[in-house]
Design a protein around this nucleic acid. Structure first.
Lengths: 200, 200
DNA sequence: CCTACCGATCGGTAGG
DNA sequence: CCTACCGATCGGTAGG
């Protein structure tokens, strides 16, 4: 339930949070940034926690629009799994100023129980399942060997994406993205190759 | 340099920072926690930034003592690389309350230029090199195939450790540690197996 | 949406 | 190492 002004606030909030952290995002700073009063901004949300939850919701929409939705044009299974990781690496380069919103937020809030952490856990878990699902479909369709452990493969692939974000943000060199891309491709190609040899 | 009181403060600071973040670590909270006055505590450091830097230094000592030093008893090369990752996973389970200090701190400070970030970059980079060095030695000694890309392998292994920390902290299930262990072992065993076949 | 304000806490200082 | 304090900023409220 919205209003254009609220959306405008959230747009800025997501960027700020990705740079300064979700807790470091302050109402005063955000209001000043948007040229409005603290209480004027505050009226759109009931509390700081609500603002944080709304920012998370907006970040999830962006992630959905940049990573998940575009992959729907690729065929379900191996192709879509590839598209998901490619989209994710693109979104890393051209997404938020502060790198992956959810990666930073999850490490920030893992020690702070509450609604904010719960929401981060829920949304992050969902993304994990989306990726894993496509790997399972790839197995069902014979694009990956039938004895592939989809959970382990998703763990590995997610690990490479996380490492790319971490290294790119910390060391500022885009080599990390290239390395992740190379490893993801060789991993899927090797798994696929094994599948094809077996079914031949 | 030092004093027992200062060490005692830092011991607590490192734990608090691993849970609440290095910026969320406040002088007042830390002082209250230790039953002393803010200014009394502050006297041991010139500024909050100095406190943060000192906490990072202490965290590095702990990391050194728990992960790197014990691996020195393993033979240089593949065995020591294995020991390093095993020690790291142990330290994750039984280390700080808040998971890996450096993983959290690096994602917290990647968007905040300054001395604190520089120090995190320097120490994290050093750990990376320690791991990569042992992989290179393993190649030199013929324990890994001569065409192994040590940089890529270190990237992959570090990715798995990071993912284990992330998933364990966020979802609270220790399966993540098991998964990382399984993948690390199979990765090194496969690389080693290829090396042995080739040299046979 | 604003001004004006609340109590609490921040990093930091004066003075002892 | 303490008490006592500084100005700034925090999340949030009153009242319009």
């Amino acid at each position: 339930m919205g209003g254009a002004k609220r959306d405008q606030i959230l747009e800025r909030a997501v960027v700020l949070a990705s740079v300064e952290g979700l807790e470091g995002l302050t109402i005063g700073r955000l209001a000043a940034d948007l040229g409005m009063s603290k209480s004027g901004l505050f009226g759109h949300f009931g509390s700081k926690e609500d603002l944080q939850l709304a920012a998370i919701g907006r970040a999830a929409e962006i992630f959905e629009g940049r990573v998940i939705a575009p992959a729907a044009t690729s065929e379900a299974g191996l192709d879509r799994a590839r598209a998901l990781t490619e989209n994710w690496l693109d979104y890393l380069m051209n997404g938020f100023e502060g790198g992956c919103f959810f990666h930073a937020a999850s490490l920030e809030f893992d020690g702070r129980p509450g609604k904010v952490k719960d929401e981060i856990v829920r949304l992050t878990g969902r993304w994990y399942v989306v990726l894993e699902d496509q790997l399972r479909r790839a197995i069902t369709r014979g694009q990956l060997p039938s004895d592939t452990d989809a959970t382990l493969l998703a763990f590995e692939m997610h690990a490479l994406l996380g490492e790319a974000n971490w290294a790119f943000r910390l060391f500022g060199r885009s080599e990390a993205l290239t390395r992740a891309r190379v490893l993801l491709n060789s991993k899927l190609a090797r798994a696929q190759g094994a599948g094809e040899r077996r079914s031949a």
